[in-house]
Design a protein around this nucleic acid. Structure first.
Lengths: 213, 213
DNA sequence: ACCTGAACACCGTTCAAGT
DNA sequence: ACCTGAACACCGTTCAAGT
């Protein structure tokens, strides 16, 4: 609902930045070409002068989100560096919760994301793993971090814990002897920093064991 | 495009089953209330007599997909059972690729899925882990398996490998000394059974180390 | 009780036209 | 060169009506 006045010149970058802000504010469903054009104070069709399709715009939004992606050259042992890189990419992904859903469609062929990949891969090679195993280990770490963000609701950690506790406590003990008795423990593991770090250490332990450390 | 003739009586279950078939055939974007009603040979609004909304229908589709979920009571050591359960849920998720995207929205409070959770949790408790750690370990395993399916394209394993190899080989070696030289190793780790099992073993090693051996 | 067409407020995108 | 309204083929859902 901005007027035409508060834009200078449209560029792919400025449009992507506005789209990212809209995404952060109102979520993935709210991002339509029509709404974004409104926000920018232009006609809907103007956007098609900068992007061939909505998909191409979403690609540009992914690139825009990586610009401010935090620590890329941490110090320390391979394990300290891997830990710092995993935490920083998690933090960045959770700053823009809608992005993970976009990323499900098109896999990791975005150039900007490769800087993080290079840094993580370097730490894994430094662990002493041969390259083929370092590549596999990278993929496990990637799967863990992205999976965690995708399946452990970030903003709603407390609500998600409550939902898990309620659901498990309501299960019939005859069919679910373990789960019905473990509602509190399961709730604690449903989300949050502690759970993220538990899993990260566990995965890194597995890598270290393979590195012969 | 079915005629009214080839349905007997509509039920929530029969509608969900048709929706799942449509999802498998044409993907998530193709599943609209209008198209599903067409498929069933009824008017669009008829569906709203069985489900209050599209979201409620998607919930029912998730439940329907769990019915045929395979191995739930494997034999063997805790680790053999955990392995069998992880592989079977991966196979089931990959049979219905669109479901993982639905599952991103609403977390694991679907009753039907809890049978799998109970069985995995039992294997983890049998490993000797205390319950709070078993709950955390379950969550890591869950994150790994679901993350793998979400981020490692199932049907398109070969194409995804080719895409990764091409993208990495095209990176400037000055900025990406490691990645540009590791295109083949990264491609091998991008998808497939071998990579899934590598990560699964790695995660189970981490769990076993915490279980004290 | 069970079903439904018309209507409303949205989508992405093509096309032909405006400056 | 850059922008755009109208139109097309879609959405999910409300409402008032049909049998």
């Amino acid at each position: 609902v901005a007027t035409r006045a508060n834009r200078t010149t449209l560029t792919r970058e400025s449009i992507a930045a506005t789209a990212l802000a809209l995404l952060d504010r109102d979520g993935l469903d709210a991002l339509s070409m029509r709404r974004l054009a409104d926000e920018l104070g232009v006609g809907t069709m103007t956007l098609y002068g900068y992007f061939r399709s909505k998909g191409e715009l979403l690609d540009a939004v992914l690139d825009a989100s990586v610009v401010d992606s935090g620590v890329l050259h941490p110090e320390g042992s391979w394990r300290e560096r891997a830990t710092a890189l995993a935490r920083s990419v998690r933090a960045n992904l959770e700053r823009h919760p809608a992005l993970i859903q976009i990323r499900l469609r098109q896999p990791m062929t975005r150039p900007a994301q490769f800087r993080w990949t290079e840094a993580v891969m370097q730490s894994l090679v430094d662990s002493g793993l041969p390259r083929d195993q370092a590549a596999r280990a990278f993929r496990v770490l990637f799967t863990y971090v992205f999976g965690f963000v995708a399946f452990s609701p970030a903003g709603a950690a407390d609500e998600s814990r409550t939902a898990v506790r309620t659901a498990l406590a309501a299960l019939p003990p005859d069919d679910y002897p373990l789960l019905s008795a473990m509602a509190d423990e399961a709730a604690a593991a449903a989300a949050g920093d502690e759970q993220f770090d538990f899993g990260l250490e566990l995965v890194l332990d597995g890598i270290e064991a393979r590195a012969g450390g």
